[in-house]
Nucleic acid binder design. Structure first.
Lengths: 190, 190
DNA sequence: CACCCACGTTAACGGTCACTAACATCGCCG
DNA sequence: CGGCGATGTTAGTGACCGTTAACGTGGGTG
């Protein structure tokens, strides 16, 4: 049997699962679909995950952790809030353009994650939002936290729309457009 | 049997279905769920719709038609493109705040609509986007149609994020915030 | 009043799906 | 080289789900 680095199969399954979940939704994908997507058939997945829900949970936890960690690193590296915001925007946009399936699953399928992991994902997502709010608060001292939170959520909606308008523009053009639109939106006074 | 205006039951079913589909996704809702939500049980729905997919199609066609018709009316009533854009934004925002379930289903479940109706929904959606592009083109003569289309999709993502951040702000504050953010985003040069 | 039709009901059927059981294969390690 | 753990395979199995069948009922109409 072809030997490969430990966990490679597991990562391959997670990647394929994200694509299928993004395309058809959690309940629209069968275990056999998932197996076929990685070249095995159906029940082989139970060697790597205890069940379908656990697989979804692993995808969501992975995405949430990557987003939060990336934002933390970028924010810490830029003392100027304006530059920190730009860096965080570039990070999120890069993620959305590179892995549209992960972004899609991330904001659609939380409801299908079983309870202990759901709480974990929620906490990670909240932490991510709060990092954005903290940076934004320094740029807009007049605005209260609820407004900033709502603004951040709206900006995420803008950035995460990429999967739905794929192919309209080449990725670099699209990235630049999203960067300017999101910046303008986040700094607009209401 | 309680007699009510013709089609009232049908409309009631559509409304309940939109809520459930938005919450759990098309495949996450059963016929029995839908029946229970309107006080009947399961198969009674087949007196009103030929099947589950037809029900979803009816929801999507209804939403798409309302959005497109509303935008057409508002755009025609305002000769100034700046005012037309504001009016269209207010219309979409009002819709998103009033009927979050419809907005959610509208941009998630197209893939589950069977083929003849899917084409129809797509055409309606495309027409809606093109109305926005036409107005925007007058405000940003320098930008090409692909950029404007991408910008419009991104703005929809921003506006449609409301369901995910419900309760952060009172509806009027949220509406005003979305209006300013979307305006700034759509008019930002890239 | 008789009939019919709109609208429900419950029971059953056939298919699909997540998951389990039982069994095979292959590389590593003692 | 012999066994063992990791990783597959195929064949169930029980539950659920969309849909259909068969049957009830009550109000408007000829």
């Amino acid at each position: 049997m072809a030997q490969r680095p430990a966990g490679a199969r597991r990562a391959e399954i997670l990647r394929a699962a994200a694509v299928l979940f993004a395309e058809r939704g959690f309940h629209g994908v069968t275990i056999d679909d998932l197996g076929r997507a990685v070249g095995t058939s159906g029940p082989a997945l139970y060697r790597h995950f205890p069940g379908k829900e656990a697989l979804l949970a692993a995808v969501l936890i992975d995405v949430s952790e990557r987003l939060a960690a990336d934002a933390r690193a970028r924010a810490a590296a830029e003392p100027d809030p304006r530059e920190a915001l730009r860096a965080m925007l570039r990070g999120h946009i890069d993620f959305a353009l590179t892995e549209p399936a992960l972004i899609t699953v991330h904001d659609r399928e939380l409801g299908n994650v079983p309870e202990p992991e759901r709480r974990r994902v929620r906490r990670l997502q909240r932490g991510y939002v709060e990092q954005w709010v903290a940076v934004l608060a320094r740029l807009r001292p007049g605005a209260g936290a609820p407004v900033l939170r709502a603004a951040v959520h709206a900006a995420f909606g803008l950035l995460n729309s990429t999967p739905h308008s794929a192919g309209e523009l080449p990725p670099e053009r699209m990235g630049a457009l999203l960067l300017e639109m999101a910046t303008a939106a986040l700094l607009a006074e209401s």
